[in-house]
Computed example of a mutant assay.
Amino acid sequence: MTPERFNECLKLLRWSQLDLAAALECDVFLVNAWANEIEPIPDDIALWLDKLARAHAKAGIPQNYKGVQLKMKIAKYAKH
């Protein structure tokens, strides 16, 4: 996996490098090194990220909620 694809996968997943480090329970500096071609991206990480990114891209995001806001309900027995 190239660093470009690595970063594209993170973008598709809406993950920051910190999010990935938290998920893997590893040092964020290691994830940053992968993203910047300082350290090679391990094959198992590359396969896992690619699989997740492809599934996420295929599933898409429901569009019905874009711009929807919660409408507050007034409690029936609210004290004034």
Rank of each mutant, 00 (worst) to 15 (best):
W15L: 13
N32H: 14
E39K: 09
K73V: 01
R54H: 03
A33L: 08
E8A: 08
L24G: 11
G60W: 06
N64P: 02
A23P: 01
Y77I: 03
K71T: 00
W15N: 02
N7W: 01
K76I: 12
F29Q: 15
A55D: 13
L47Q: 14
K66Y: 13
V31T: 00
K11Q: 03
T2Y: 12
K79F: 03
Q69C: 09
E25D: 11
E4W: 03
Y77S: 01
L24E: 14
G60F: 03
A22R: 09
E39W: 06
A57C: 08
N36E: 14
L18N: 14
L70M: 13
D43M: 09
M1A: 13
A22T: 09
R14K: 15
H80L: 06
A53S: 10
Q63W: 10
M72N: 14
E8C: 07
L49D: 00
D50M: 06
R54L: 07
N7R: 13
W34C: 00
L12N: 11
K11F: 15
E25C: 05
Y77E: 01
R14P: 00
I45D: 01
Q63E: 09
S16T: 13
E4A: 11
Y77N: 01
A33N: 11
P42K: 01
D43F: 13
A33E: 04
K71Q: 06
P42V: 03
V68D: 12
L13A: 04
V68N: 13
I61Q: 15
V68G: 02
N64W: 04
C9G: 03
A35R: 07
A21W: 04
A23K: 07
L10S: 12
A23F: 06
L13Y: 04
N36C: 12
D19Y: 09
W34Y: 15
K66E: 07
R5D: 04
V68Y: 09
S16V: 06
I61V: 08
H56R: 04
M1I: 10
A53N: 07
L18T: 14
N32P: 05
P42T: 03
V31R: 04
F29T: 15
W48A: 10
E37Q: 13
A53Y: 09
K76P: 08
V28A: 07
M72E: 15
L49K: 05
K66I: 10
I45F: 01
G67E: 01
N64T: 11
L52Q: 10
D44E: 05
K73L: 11
L70H: 15
M1G: 13
K79A: 11
N32A: 13
A75G: 06
K71S: 07
Y77W: 01
P62E: 09
R54K: 05
A46I: 08
Q17C: 11
R14F: 09
L49T: 01
A46H: 01
Y77F: 03
K58I: 08
Q17I: 01
K11T: 07
I74M: 06
K79D: 03
K66C: 08
A21I: 05
A75Y: 04
Q63K: 15
T2G: 02
P62W: 12
M72V: 14
A57W: 09
P3K: 12
L12T: 11
A59M: 08
V31Y: 10
H56D: 02
C26E: 00
H56C: 02
D27R: 11
